[in-house]
Amino acid sequence: MTAENYVVKYGSLLKEETLEVIDDKILPNTIVLEATNPFPGYYEYYDGFQKDVQPHYIYLVLDRKYDLEEFTRATQKIMSYFEANFHAAIGNITIYNDVYHAIRIRRLTAYDQIKELQSCYREEGIDFKSGATIPHNSKAMIQLDKFFALDIIEDGFFKDHIEPNHGYFTIPQKLNWKQFEQLTKQVKYNMEMIHFDVSLGFIYDHFRAIDMIRVYAEDLNLDLMKKIKAKYLERIK
């Protein structure tokens, strides 16, 4: 990709995943969750495929909602000295109608780094929830507010500039999760056993909210994204 095709946009991503509770290698009396299978729509067809990928996506549960500036400035400072080149996004997790504010962490290289990173956030003024119990293997709705680094492939199609096998395509209207879930079942039923995982999102662009779908698949390419988008557009009313 040429430099002029690389853009950064702010937006949001919504997905459903099963989260496991991490019981050790964390600060005492805090809550840390892990998505051990972060792309279930893809990996459900490949049992055990992710077992060697550790650590997975980590969620640090916060004591309250922090605004974007608080979170960004704290993360920016920590990144200047922390041992791992991690990536962080802020958002919330809904489990059984209970909402938890959280930081999603990617790219840690060892579980021992979780406790160290928690300590760094605490030193920078961001603290963690205590006194709550979350069941193991909880199904959760996860909403992340984040910056997207996007390579423009074609009008309405993007690849993630940082994360491999992540792509995005725009859709003409906002969908709620129930609509999206139903459409996805219909699309997958008509995709001739092509396996992929999807999430729902949007980005801000030129004072507008642009709705889109994030696709994850190994060796993701423009042709596959076009096929998936066409199936969704056939069904979006």
Rank of each mutant, 00 (worst) to 15 (best):
Y121G: 04
E16H: 13
Q173I: 14
K77V: 00
I90G: 00
N37E: 06
D63I: 06
E124Y: 08
L233P: 06
P38G: 08
K178D: 14
A132Y: 12
E218S: 08
T2M: 08
M1P: 10
E16N: 13
Q179P: 03
N190C: 06
D205V: 05
I90P: 00
K139A: 12
V7R: 13
Y111C: 09
N190T: 08
G156P: 06
G131L: 07
P40E: 08
N85K: 08
R214W: 09
D23T: 11
E181R: 09
K139T: 14
F180G: 00
G201F: 05
S12A: 15
D52E: 10
S130M: 03
S80Y: 05
F158G: 03
M79W: 04
I22W: 08
K146A: 07
H56N: 12
I194P: 02
Y204Q: 13
T184L: 11
L62C: 10
R106Y: 07
V61S: 04
L62A: 04
Y111V: 09
I105Q: 10
C120Y: 07
T184H: 02
Q173W: 01
F169G: 03
L27Y: 08
E17P: 03
G125C: 07
H161M: 11
Q50Y: 03
F128C: 01
E124M: 12
E234I: 04
N85L: 06
S12W: 10
Q143D: 09
E124G: 00
N97H: 12
N5C: 06
I228H: 03
R235P: 04
Q143L: 12
K229T: 04
I78D: 00
V21F: 09
D112G: 07
N29G: 00
P40S: 05
V61L: 07
D205T: 09
M141T: 13
M191T: 11
L233W: 05
N165C: 06
N92Y: 15
I31H: 04
R214K: 15
L68N: 09
L14R: 15
E234K: 13
Q50K: 09
A209S: 14
I153G: 00
F157A: 01
N92F: 15
Y111W: 04
